[in-house]
């Protein structure tokens, strides 16, 4: 695609691409898991920006679409494991919604690596670090998300 390749060439090749990833973490498990990764000094790539939310159930699909539209290269939503939800069932409702959001975005052609969901408990510091590692590497390989973001696409631009 034209504008995509343009983007890639305009991009400074001297350093490897560093994606920007936003992670929405539930307050009770995943945010605590991220804290535990910190307390345990598990190192992971610095590409991630965490936004704390009360529950994975709080994540409106609009947030995910909005993040991509802003040109964020990847989105992670993480909550408590099934059964552990501090709000009893928020993560179960979220799981239904996320399944459809993820599958749909993938279907229309957004790389599935860019929108990820996970369960991370308060005891899973390692797992949190591993997930961030994995996501960052995958998205780094994909390169920047240019084809949906506001301002870099223009109607009728395709050939």
């Amino acid at each position: 695609m034209k504008h995509e390749s343009n983007e890639r060439t305009s991009f400074d090749k001297s350093k490897s691409f560093e994606p920007k990833i936003v992670a929405f973490l539930c307050n009770w498990c995943s945010y605590a898991g991220a804290d535990l990764a910190g307390v345990s000094r598990f190192q992971y790539p610095a590409n991630i920006r965490i936004i704390k939310v009360p529950c994975s159930g709080r994540i409106n699909p609009l947030y995910i679409v909005k993040a991509l539209y802003n040109g964020v290269d990847g989105v992670l939503v993480s909550g408590c494991h099934p059964g552990d939800c501090h709000y009893i069932s928020g993560n179960y409702f979220a799981r239904r919604k996320f399944a459809l959001v993820k599958k749909f975005l993938e279907y229309v052609g957004i790389e599935s690596e860019r929108v990820q969901f996970s369960w991370v408990s308060a005891a899973e510091g390692v797992r949190f670090a591993q997930i961030i590692d994995k996501l960052t590497n995958e998205i780094r390989k994909l390169g920047p998300l240019t084809y949906f973001r506001k301002g870099s696409t223009c109607k009728g631009d395709q050939t």
Binding site: K20, V22, R49, I51, V53, N60, L62, Y63, K66, A67, N70, G71, V72, P144, R149, K150, G151, S152
Partner: peptide
């Protein structure tokens, strides 16, 4: 929503 979007806005590519 406004607050989440305000935080997300910091991450705008441009």
């Amino acid at each position: 929503d406004e607050q989440v979007l305000a935080a997300l806005d910091v991450l705008r590519w441009d």
